[in-house]
Design a protein around this nucleic acid. Structure first.
Lengths: 233, 233
DNA sequence: CTGTATCCGTGTTGATACTG
DNA sequence: CAGTATCAACACGGATACAG
């Protein structure tokens, strides 16, 4: 019934657009709907299935996720893929242009992390954690030293390569080349990296497992400083 | 009547918040509602009155603008001020932290300007124009040369100082120190600076008036390159 | 003249239940 | 697992009336 009356997808995607030539306003036409940017955030670290997206987006309902994926696909930000057999699963991925939206998340995150109302105890998806590391890395703190840190969060794993060119943090199946591998929930890893909680404490609590060079883990926890909070309103 | 039932402003501002520790998600809790970021955009170039905001936001209704201003004030992004007599007008201004949100607009704008669906013929507010110049300035194109360009758009005026430190573009009442002053609608100025339309053509059409060194105006129009469009979906 | 509050039609959002 | 259908609540936007 809906598809009978709508002549093209653009009309559906732009039901309520801003009438504004400003490119930032256009960005909000494209990805300003509720949940749209968070769907993109989940896809920034790689293709995901429908249910993986739901898992990383606490509170989204299935129909809204469907609508957002359709809308993002219509404007060229997301594409559907079907994995080759034997998986044959349908996944959603960002297009190359969608991938270029990462600076938007960095700007939003850097700004909002100063908010006095920010609640860091809420659910924290793996994609958020990975993006936050890429956002908050302070190259000046690394001071020429280099290292390789593996992360295992849930079923996903990532490798962070810190060197003279900064931080390169990407999904990686093989963490054998890492100096140290940190295993745990995103929230626990964040507690050490952002909250200053000692690794040993998290290990005792069973929240984190460290394999390899603990010195590198301690060093890592000094590389992601948070800016000071704004005075509460 | 509203304030009788609502215990605090946070409840009103967060009726529909994401349950997510990600700072970018929190940013959307703060400023992700429809119109909120565009209200901030209008305030990025300085305090404005209610009716000025409406003028720069085609399509917003008075009650929605009131709601957004209340919400942004509640979270510490906007503050009300009353100008000293004899003006005694109430204006809205960004707080220092609100002003720090400019990188968000730059990231959004830089990303969306590549969109094949972007319509540059829509209304273009003065604030958008000024922000777009700050966003798109390419320091490498200036190549060591310096200059001072005044802009008069409607009743507002701005001074752009281009030098070794890049571009500094701020509101300024006195444009006497400018090498050249460009007067016209934002859209006309953008046609030359972004669209490559010759100044002379715009002058003949009565859309732009140039006072001073035309060579500086021509040079200016080379300093704001737009990235290539993405292939249409 | 500058905002603010209220009513109301319309469309979007989100929870539950359900189907391929 | 991957979505669709239905429905209630609420947000948006227009008009209008009101307050400083």
């Amino acid at each position: 019934m809906k598809s009978e009356k709508v002549t093209n997808e653009d009309a559906a995607a732009f039901r309520r657009r801003y009438d504004d030539a400003c490119a930032a306003a256009h960005a909000l036409d494209l990805v300003g709907e509720r949940w749209a940017l968070l769907v993109m955030r989940e896809l920034m670290t790689g293709p995901k299935r429908f249910s993986d997206l739901r898992a990383g987006l606490p509170g989204i309902s299935a129909n809204v996720l469907t609508q957002r994926l359709e809308g993002l696909e219509a404007v060229g930000v997301v594409e559907r893929r079907t994995l080759p057999p034997p998986a044959s699963t349908r996944v959603y991925a960002l297009t190359p242009w969608g991938l270029e939206a990462e600076p938007i998340f960095q700007a939003l995150g850097r700004w909002a992390v100063r908010s006095p109302l920010h609640d860091p105890t809420a659910p924290f998806s793996t994609a958020s954690f990975v993006l936050s590391l890429r956002t908050m890395f302070a190259a000046t703190r690394a001071a020429g030293r280099s290292g390789r840190v593996g992360f295992r969060v849930g079923r996903e794993s990532y490798l962070a390569v810190i060197g003279p060119d900064g931080l390169d943090l990407q999904p990686a199946e093989d963490l054998a080349t890492a100096d140290v591998v940190l295993t745990g929930e995103a929230r626990s890893l964040a507690a050490a990296i952002y909250g200053g909680q000692p690794w040993a404490e998290l290990e005792r609590a069973g929240a984190v497992t460290i394999t390899g060079d603990r010195g590198v883990a301690d060093w890592l926890a000094t590389l992601f400083p948070l800016p000071p909070k704004v005075e509460a309103g």
